[in-house]
Amino acid sequence: MGCYWSKKAKTPGYEDPAVLAAETPFTVNEVEALYELFKKLSSSIFDDGLIHKEEFQLALFKNKDKRNLFADRIFDLFDVKRNGVIEFGEFVRSLGVFHPNAPVEDKTEFAFRLYDLRQTGYIEREELKEMVLALLHESELVLSDDVIEVIVDKTYSEADKKGDGRIDQEEWREFVLKHPSLIKNMTLPYLKDITLAFPSFVMSSEVED
């Protein structure tokens, strides 16, 4: 007992699975399974036990050079310490928000921070338009600027209840309550079966949940 994990403790940013399990919807076994995934992702280009943006892009798009506004924002939010890499603890805590059992409030807040591109505490109209343009670009959908303006205006006038030209957290929460499908992208059903994805780990685990 003990030797198995003491080896892993040498990885930079490694954290005790029991601590991470206590802070997230994952069980200890699931955190350990996530470590298997983390090791794979964090060694795909640079073998340093940290997920670099290129490694994140490679896993997400099968292309290390493919950049995308939303992928950049997701990476930045996962990179809590803002040091340009995702450490194991950051990875587990952030993925925890995407767990089907994570609180809706956490998902709503994460989405707000994601869409608050310039981190001003508000989702501004310009940011919303920028995100719509990014989505259209990645989907190769073509809409006229007039149509885009109508879509953004309509959404904005509905969400910006106070009418001050920006969407704050409270307005965002109300808007999500009215349109719960907006945070569907904050849930990964797959995370419920994470130990099934990495069964080799479960065989070697000595920790019981």
């Binding site: 997400l60 919303l128 349109h179 907006l182 990964l188 994805a197």
Partner: peptide, 25 residues
């Protein structure tokens, strides 16, 4: 009709949210 779309609904469909791709072997 595109004009009836909710802008946030639209952006939530970005492929970047397919985080299950991270788990592909």
């Amino acid at each position: 009709k595109p004009v009836s779309m909710n802008a946030f609904e639209l952006i939530s469909r970005s492929k970047s949210f397919n985080l299950e791709n991270l788990f592909e072997k």
